[in-house]
Nucleic acid binder design. Structure first.
Lengths: 313, 313
DNA sequence: GCATTTCTTTGACATTTGCCAATCGATGTG
DNA sequence: CACATCGATTGGCAAATGTCAAAGAAATGC
């Protein structure tokens, strides 16, 4: 109640300032507080999502390049960052752009799935707060320790927090030591339920992982370097929600995949809008695999990757 | 193209300023323009919907009063303006609140129906610009001259313009001199099509009209004073999209209604979300009729009206 | 091809806003 | 009950922003 009461004055200040266009001193006068308080309240209103300031992203789609990628790969929408910037800036532009695009795509009452990776972490980090209602955020892959601030479950919860949404976590590790144990765990009602709930998602947000020495799955300890080499000989081309896929986007038939607990690839493909975000140029091959597998309906990427995609096709 | 080029720099400035949080002088430096230009561009970005600043409306629903109205009349959501303001201020608060609520409710790709009246006109007037995609705005009633700035068709187009949407106008007068002529006109393919498209709406926005001497329908010349008196003896209780309803919200069986060209009441009721906005206290009885008839799923009203509603029920 | 109009840009100034250190006030603690 | 602690609030100042008149550029008309 005390919380609600405090929110009330913040909201009122925001309403008078942003909706009615009063100046801060006028707002202060009306509410009988100092102008400094008004300034403080307004900042809180912005930070907490009571006030939302969004910049349209459609201009990132207006370029020739985005159209070409859309057409070539049959995607619904493609956003290209920094067509006139250096490659470094380009990559830095991806997280805020992806966060804006994602916020534009989420609607009230929807269920969204979040996979995890360096990119998704970066997106969560810059995502602004929103005051959505009835949104549920579902974690799409099992957990593992991370060298970054967020683990998969924390990442999901962080996004949920920023969307004012309910977060559904996944209480299982991403990789187990034996396929049998993974099978057994998948049959646990609580896990099973979570896995089933994936197909009910309206929207998903993920990136695609590489299979390099310094790739995410290796650095987080899900795969050892020797397993990696082995997988590559078997045709591994990328990682989607912790699972290894081949160049055609099909689940690689390998021991590793059998030990993973994550959203079923078919369920992922069944999600109507699948927002894939690719930041690094090194992710070209995994991205091709993900596109081939139908894991992407909406793409956010750099101009460099977009050009690479079109060039090598 | 020149337009798109100009948009581009405005968008870039907005992106750097609002999304990246640079200061105006930093933006100016990056884009090689003067800071004054940046300030100008930012204003344009806000005014044109490239940048959207929205204040949450849910705090207008957090009060006891809204809950009570929701429960009593089985509505999905009720927003109450100015529970702690004088009655005058209350009414002034309705248009910006309704505009904000409406903008929160509209989603991409949706079809929205707009009826017309003093209230809807006031809402259109304060509605901010948005950068929605694929929205269609449908005019729900026929046209008539207005003592205000907007006629029904202009009002529809104005809202369409602000939503960056397509506007579907209705090319018929609201009231004709004989029922036969109205019937004939309704059978015209172009009109028929428009009328049919109403049931495909996802959302509607309207107010309810009174049947007083100075009511909207009278002042605009749709009804004469004598017709009005006649209708009142027949049990007329209010006006929805130009049509007269009785206290139970049913279409009044009268000559006037047979001469009106407007969206069928059944189609209106079939729209999943029906946002009704009531500004003046004098609209209590019409509002009751509209509620009884099921024309409202979401309500925006003043605290005074809300209390009246609960008191007399 | 020149004059006229209209739109854009800019420098300079006035106003508004953000921020910090100081103060106030509530709540908990020895 | 005095004291400490923590968060909320405020006055004042530096920084950032909005605005306007004037200059410049582009489009339009004669």
């Amino acid at each position: 109640m005390a919380k609600a009461q405090a929110d009330r004055i913040v909201h009122k200040a925001a309403w008078l300032y942003y909706t009615h266009g009063l100046r801060q001193d006028e707002v202060a006068q009306r509410l009988n507080i100092s102008r400094a308080s008004v300034a403080l309240y307004l900042r809180r209103a912005r930070e907490s999502g009571i006030v939302t300031i969004a910049t349209a992203t459609y201009l990132f789609r207006g370029e020739q390049l985005s159209r070409e990628v859309e057409d070539r790969f049959g995607l619904e929408a493609v956003w290209i960052a920094g067509e006139d910037l250096a490659a470094d800036d380009e990559e830095a532009e991806i997280p805020p752009l992806a966060a804006s695009v994602f916020l534009e795509m989420v609607g009230r009452g929807q269920r969204v799935g979040i996979a995890w990776g360096r990119t998704v972490y970066a997106i969560a980090d810059v995502m602004s707060f929103a005051d959505l209602e009835g949104v549920t955020v579902v974690q799409l892959c099992g957990n593992l320790g991370a060298p970054y601030s967020y683990r998969p479950d924390q990442c999901t919860m962080e996004i949920a927090r920023r969307l004012n949404a309910r977060g559904l976590n996944f209480y299982a590790p991403l990789v187990l030591s034996t396929p049998d144990l993974a099978d057994a765990l998948r049959d646990e009602p609580v896990i099973h339920e979570q896995l089933d709930s994936v197909s009910g998602c309206d929207l998903s947000l993920y990136s695609v992982g590489t299979l390099d020495e310094d790739s995410h799955v290796v650095k987080c300890g899900a795969l050892t370097t020797s397993e990696l080499a082995q997988l590559k000989t078997q045709g591994a081309a990328g990682v989607i929600a912790g699972q290894v896929i081949d160049r055609n986007g099909l689940l690689l038939d390998c021991d590793y995949n059998r030990r993973v607990i994550s959203a079923d690839l078919e369920s992922l493909k069944a999600i109507p809008r699948r927002l894939l975000v690719v930041q690094e140029e090194s992710k070209l091959e995994p991205l091709r695999a993900a596109l081939a597998g139908g894991f992407c309906s909406h793409l956010v990427a750099t101009a460099t990757i977009a050009r690479d995609l079109l060039a090598g096709d």
